[in-house]
Design a protein around this nucleic acid. Structure first.
Lengths: 228, 228
DNA sequence: GTTTGCTTGATTATCGATATTCCTTGCGAT
DNA sequence: ATCGCAAGGAATATCGATAATCAAGCAAAC
């Protein structure tokens, strides 16, 4: 059967708002007028407030009582803290995964790495970006999943959602550069190699370096866009 | 001036609901009828839905579209995963804190440890529980704060909020037992000692052991209460 | 010239009413 | 007896209207 989940408007509003905030359709710090949001999404204030409440929990939006909602601001300081936290957490999770991962974990890493390595047959540039990013995320998630700790994975996802606004700045620079893509390709191959050899210390260091490479590019883009 | 923050009803509803869920006023898995919540807190459905949305983000409540909200269930499986995640994360944060902590970090640890060690002059049993718990949390938070990574601290807090329902089961058993309290006291003293010596590996092991001690007690209480 | 207070328009916060969806129960057919 | 289905009751989801609050502009006073 066609099990159309029939989700309620608050959930839809949440998805759309999150998407638009991450993609930069709303500027950091921008006030989110209920009247504007009503027009844009054709929704009542009820569902909107529910969606915004959830985004406040995720720290993509800040609420000021009696004064509505604003998009969370971005700063170099937060960028550094986010990537610091993310790098440390991903390193921890990777060590656990190497300690705990089983055969199907290894198989999934190889499968997702393979899929990621051959993103070729795409049409438009936007599609390229979406496809590469989705497979890139799937690859890293497959690695992390070996830690066998759902709540650590949840914490990882929370951090990732927060960093995604910054990361998206980097993505546009990388995906459209053959050179940058090739560099990522070889980094991923080296990572897989070390992980399958279960060399935890080396894998952790490589992962940290790998995760940190976007930071200088993001800083450059932020300064260019006057965000810093 | 008396800066009464004048927070809106949704925020109040969030605090009350969270408090009541953690303290077990609503059973795990219990359906949260809007009509009942309306009566209990004397609020409209709007603020309630906003509060519940946030609790869904924190995974203390689950929402099923078109079918309302339920308190998140509890299980031995989740208990083990939560404590695993928490222990690993707290260990990571402690290592970072030992590497990065400065003089004022050390001072705060000593200060909060001292305050925790002498919880004596309390009146009622309930007050004892609240005071001891607050100081206990302050002590551990002071240790963690040395990592100097706000977003890791946020991830830590998220995990803590989720574990608090389980932890509360343990708290009632521990705080009212002079023997258990003494054991915690000496563990804390030993922890402070090792931390100030900046012995990261040993400190991490001790911290993990310390955090894990409640687990068997919680399992016992859960089985007694038919939660498992 | 700066500050204070008032007025007015704009915005948020909340509730009650309505529409939609879900769940149970009971009846009839197989 | 069991299954399917329809009807009624219960609960959720949403909107529009109203009340409460805030922000800007102007005027008068110091």
């Amino acid at each position: 059967m066609d099990t159309a989940p029939k989700q309620n408007l608050a959930i839809s509003a949440y998805s759309w708002l999150k998407h638009d905030i991450i993609r930069g359709a709303f500027a950091p710090g921008e006030k989110l007028l209920m009247s504007k949001l009503r027009d844009r999404y054709e929704l009542g204030v009820g569902p909107l407030r529910e969606a915004l409440s959830q985004l406040v929990s995720e720290q993509l939006v800040v609420a000021i009582s009696q004064r509505g909602y604003r998009v969370a601001s971005m700063s170099l300081e937060e960028l550094h803290d986010l990537y610091d936290a993310r790098t440390q957490l991903e390193g921890l999770i990777l060590e656990l995964a190497i300690e705990r991962g089983d055969d199907s974990w290894e198989a999934n890493i190889l499968a997702t790495a393979h899929t990621l390595a051959k993103v070729m047959e795409v049409n438009t540039a936007e599609e390229m970006l979406d496809v590469w990013d989705a497979r890139h995320i799937a690859f890293h998630t497959a690695i992390a999943a070996g830690c066998n700790a759902p709540h650590l994975m949840q914490a990882r996802k929370n951090l990732f959602d927060q960093v995604e606004r910054y990361r998206h700045l980097w993505l546009r620079e990388t995906v459209f550069s053959e050179k940058a893509l090739n560099r990522k390709r070889s980094e991923h191959a080296a990572l897989v190699d070390v992980i399958l050899k279960r060399d935890a210390a080396k894998a952790r260091d490589m992962m940290r370096t790998h995760l940190m490479t976007p930071v200088p590019i993001i800083i450059e883009v932020m300064e260019r866009h006057g965000l810093a």
